[in-house]
Design a binder for these strands. Structure first.
Length: 209
DNA sequence: CGATTTTGACCGGCGC
DNA sequence: GCGCCGGTCAAAATCG
């Protein structure tokens, strides 16, 4: 167990999103409460365009008592078999096997080895207090599944970035103890900037990182 | 009409 | 080896 997942670059952060938060938070998004350097210091893998994911309009700093930040313990160490590079920053690893077709890629040879796609993608887990499930982080997501998981009363939703070359995924689930708390887990890194998706001028600020 | 969501089935990994 | 569980696929339904 140990020694294998110490590397798991999964971090969790707790943010506090005011109840008025709407699916369009991005309209008035702002950087977390802290500079992106903070994330890097924590082992955060910053997406190509800069900072990680922008979420809350009311992000609280780590020093705030209501904020928790923990490293997500992975039951599965995301075996990084050969996906090699072992460096999540190595973007080539993600572009080599997927040739951008996440939706058709595996439809073929269904009976065969599905894929050894157990690559260790960087994962960030945010715990936010919000009444909306999907926080608008500037990217466009498409839901591809929903599952009821064992330890949670609420179903977990699976989303993928709709951008062509981007295979970033995210899982969204609510805490069973507190249905106002939403846990969003991002997996992978975007190969594009948010405004690339939305092409809505509102997001231009994203690319400034 | 195209894009997105829903939903059940399928598959692989892991624990027992 | 078997069963459980999480994650993904894909067809159908729904939405804009």
């Amino acid at each position: 167990m140990e020694g294998n997942q110490g590397d798991g670059s999964s971090r969790c952060y707790l943010l506090d999103v005011p109840p008025v938060s709407r699916p369009s938070m991005a309209a008035h998004q702002m950087e977390f409460g802290y500079p992106k350097e903070s994330f890097q210091g924590l082992g955060f893998v910053v997406p190509p365009h800069g900072g990680p994911f922008l979420l809350s309009t009311d992000a609280v700093p780590f020093t705030n008592p209501t904020t928790t930040c923990w490293e997500k313990s992975l039951s599965k160490p995301w075996s990084n078999e050969e996906v090699g590079a072992s460096d999540p920053n190595d973007q080539t690893s993600s572009s080599k096997d997927g040739d951008n077709s996440w939706w058709r890629g595996s439809s073929l040879e269904k009976g065969k080895v599905k894929v050894k796609r157990k690559m260790r993608e960087p994962r960030f887990c945010f715990q936010t207090r919000s009444d909306v499930d999907v926080l608008d982080d500037g990217y466009k997501w498409r839901k591809y599944g929903q599952k009821v998981v064992k330890n949670s009363l609420h179903p977990r939703s699976y989303y993928r970035c709709t951008h062509n070359n981007c295979r970033v995924k995210k899982r969204v689930e609510r805490l069973s103890e507190d249905c106002r708390m939403v846990i969003t887990t991002y997996e992978g890194r975007h190969t594009h900037s948010p405004c690339d998706d939305e092409n809505s001028s509102e997001h231009e600020c994203f690319s400034s990182f």
